[in-house]
């Protein structure tokens, strides 16, 4: 994996955590853990290779504990990897930390960067000084984002009085205020309503398009992945299972959904009996066709030639099913 176009390039990235475990509950166990501790070693990331081109929106998906947050933390320079290397914009996130973080924005859905008691505008003002953003540029950027997210009145209210959706929009502005080249979003829409989610998605798309900003988004929301991301990385048990486009991922599935409606019940019953199907309704049958075993084309031709068929509906397995199948491959 060597590509000059990559803005982010990770090679054989691994992270092992030493975690204290207590196999019994109760006070005695707690007391004994003061003297004798058991530890477990968790491989949160296993030799991850990753290459991301500038200006793309990359989705990171995987079940809980798959290593998404660990990967983001290593990419952002928060965690030192146990082994492996990262090159982002020609920088090493640890040795060039100060220079590097000037060019990235980060939003953790579960960790607020805003000052809880004060209006978001106070946090923005503090960040302006922290990132030494010129006042005119700051005003323009703030206006651009507040208009995009429609939060002009929201940013002047104390953060503690905001709804989760409003707060998340303000958090997003905070991550983007210094015009970073790369933005990491760890579950940016967790727990927020459909309208706010859509508004955040639209903003990400717009910023990506207008400013060629690269986004790395970790999420459990597959709708978000389908509607936002150019490419995805699927993680499970600390390993990358898939890197590429959604379309290619869909094609990885060996099954196609087939739905056939017959003109008469007799034909339907014949097919049901022949293929031992159980998903039927009136004159319609539904089944998954494994294209590695049966030819897609020949199956359809056979059906059309031998039965009176009113309608055939062919579709790929939906992305949720594909990903669920991947998650289950432990």
């Amino acid at each position: 994996m060597n590509n000059d176009n990559y803005i982010i390039e990770a090679k054989k990235l691994s992270k092992v955590f030493k975690v204290h475990i207590r196999d019994r509950e109760g006070m005695l166990s707690a007391l004994s853990s003061l003297f004798f501790r058991q530890y477990d070693y968790v491989n949160a990331a296993k030799e991850i290779n990753l290459g991301i081109i500038q200006g793309t929106i990359r989705g990171l998906i995987g079940p809980n504990g798959a290593g998404k947050s660990t990967l983001i933390k290593m990419l952002t320079g928060i965690l030192f990897p146990t082994s492996g290397s990262i090159n982002i914009m020609g920088l090493n996130p640890w040795s060039d930390r100060i220079k590097y973080v000037n060019n990235i924005g980060v939003l953790f859905g579960q960790k607020s960067q805003l000052i809880w008691e004060l209006p978001a505008i106070d946090t923005y003002s503090y960040y302006r000084k922290m990132y030494t953003i010129p006042i005119d540029s700051y005003k323009d950027t703030l206006k651009y984002f507040t208009n995009l997210l429609n939060i002009k009145d929201v940013i002047t209210k104390p953060v503690r009085n905001l709804s989760l959706g409003e707060r998340m929009k303000c958090e997003l502005v905070c991550a983007l205020l210094h015009n970073p080249k790369i933005v990491y979003l760890d579950e940016p829409t967790i727990g927020i309503d459909v309208t706010a989610k859509q508004s955040i998605r639209n903003m990400i798309k717009k910023v990506n398009k207008d400013r060629n900003t690269t986004f790395i988004i970790s999420t459990h929301d597959l709708y978000e992945i389908e509607n936002l991301c150019d490419e995805i990385t699927v993680l499970n048990n600390g390993s990358v299972i898939y890197n590429g486009t959604l379309e290619k991922l869909r094609m990885l599935s060996s099954k196609k959904k087939v739905e056939i409606t017959f003109f008469n019940k007799a034909d339907k019953n014949k097919v049901v009996k022949m293929w031992n199907l159980n998903q039927t309704m009136n004159n319609t049958i539904k089944f998954d066709l494994d294209v590695t075993k049966y030819s897609y084309k020949e199956t359809i031709i056979y059906l059309l030639q031998n039965f009176a068929i009113k309608d055939i509906n062919l579709s790929s397995i939906n992305i949720e099913t594909v990903i669920e199948a991947i998650y289950n491959q432990k």
Binding site: T76, Q113, Y131
Partner: peptide, 13 residues
């Protein structure tokens, strides 16, 4: 609670 990591994302030691 892990909020310390937000410090590591800022352009200061």
């Amino acid at each position: 609670y892990g909020h310390f990591e937000l410090f590591l994302l800022k352009p200061y030691p």
